[in-house]
Nucleic acid binder design. Sequence first.
DNA 1: GACGGAAAGA
DNA 2: TCTTTCCGTC
Length: 601
Amino acid sequence: MKTPGDTGFAFPDWAYKPESSPGSRQIQLWHFILELLRKEEYQEVIAWQGDYGEFVIKDPDEVARLWGARKCKPQMNYDKLSRALRYYYNKRILHKTKGKRFTYKFNFNKLVLVNYPFIDMGSGRGVPQSAPPVPTGGSHFRFPPSTPSDVLSPSEDLRSPGVFSTVARRMARGSVSDCSDGTSTNSELEEGVGVEDRGGADRAFRGLLHPRLSHDSLFRAYGGPGGLGRPPPAHRVHADPLSPFPVSPLPGPGGLLGPTLSPALSMTPGSHLPYTPSPSLSPMLGSHFSFNPEDMKRYLQAHHQSVYNYHLSPRAFFHYPNIVVPQPHRPSAAPEKPPAALHHAPLMPHSHSLHHHQGDEQQHPSPFKFKLQPPPLGRKQRDGSASSTGGSSSSMGSSYAASGLLSNSLSCPPKIKVEPISDMESEEEVEVTDISEEDELPDDEGDVFASPYPANGSAPPTVANGALGAIAEDDLDEDVFKTPAAPPMGPLTLTLLGLKSEPPPPISPGGTLCIPLKQRFKRRWSEDQKMEADGEREDAEDKKVRAEKDEAEPAAREPGNVDGLRKSPCLGQGGPPAQRRASSELQRATAQLSLENHGTC
DNA sequence: GACGGAAAGA
DNA sequence: TCTTTCCGTC
């Protein structure tokens, strides 16, 4: 795989800036968490786990200690730290992964989209080098050249996360203790950086690229919740358990986006599969908000895809209607993608995790198996609280300064008002149900693995309602999205957001237009199954007959005769199995398209 | 362990 | 505004 420096970026600068959180002048806990997460040396303390921003605090005491050191709060402990983390629940920055101790999950959609809403992803030219000014007057927002070779001024280079070689080392630094003396100290983090420096870029980019990416681990297709449920770690051959992004928006099997997706995500499509680096801290030492526009664009595009699969805030897109979801890359557009990969290429970002226990599902072009993981229900919404046992809590040990990437930034990141989320509109209330095969999707933690057509409590599971339900989670403005939507497949996903109009939904095969989605899917599935079964059976029979025939008339078999005809591309359905199969495939594809274009009843 | 209210500090 | 601290509850 490529080295971190080849592509990708750290988590957006703003993620590390105190300014990113109005009112805060100090590093915020989630910043700190991200900071630790990107440090390889803290793998044993805290690490990405599961998918899409999920991380586990392996050593609560230590994390608390580090946090306490960072904040000069010697009395800090996990109990207090966790309280702080819990405050993020309402802010949707974080949510708890139920059933897993010390496991939380970042809602990067909230963190990213809300901060990059102004990007015109529809622009073929990418993000303008000079980004629109952000609401916050004093912020210095700009898009640096796409590549290091584009030359950044020395000062810029120091600030730009887009320059990897520099960033790799730099990002690991920037630890300024918030302690009263205001001095920068060599914290453990700082020390860790040194190690990273010595260890090379790969290590230094632990945060940029998932640490485990260094050993061929892969992220599940970012936008591909593509049904990428959460594979057990043991199956995560390619899915980086550390990655907050379950699936990669990268090209590759089913890949939809370009190689480098994001400044926030280091995308390093490997020779084998696409990678989705974990979002991590960018070497934000200054106040500049810089990143590669192309990367950002791709990232957001990918993120857009995730709307269907995760708690994204579609509202953000409505604020910026120009956002356009890219068409799946063609071979020519994605040279890095092995032609073979296209074969499976679903329109949605696809999982690379071929060994995933849900591999079959992932390979299936069907977009119906997405995992939607609504944040944990608030206490009020919860029927009951799940209690767990064990765990630890402790008081701080010795205090020492921990490093921090965030320091004195002057700029403010673009901000979009995050409207209060009522109990009812909350993504938490969106119970997403996998209408396809729930039983196939283990839910080891209460997360919901679902298709993009959740059984919205307030609406029947029609394509529109279902899809909307899926994206209605989070702080979505429901009204805006109450438009007919097509299944989240590639370009059609835009429909869900109402960003792109689609022609009237064609009548699906079998006239199932107004049949509940679930039913239609089942019907289609049955048809497909039947079709395949018939095809195989006929094929087998055909072979058998042929064999018998060959035995009986060995001399009659002349080149160009039977086989010649068999290979004829002009044969219709009545042709040989190969043709029938092709026809079947064609029909299936047609059905697929039909479904895709289905808005609603 | 996890949650969240409350009060207080920065 | 964001914790920090404390605490009762599940």
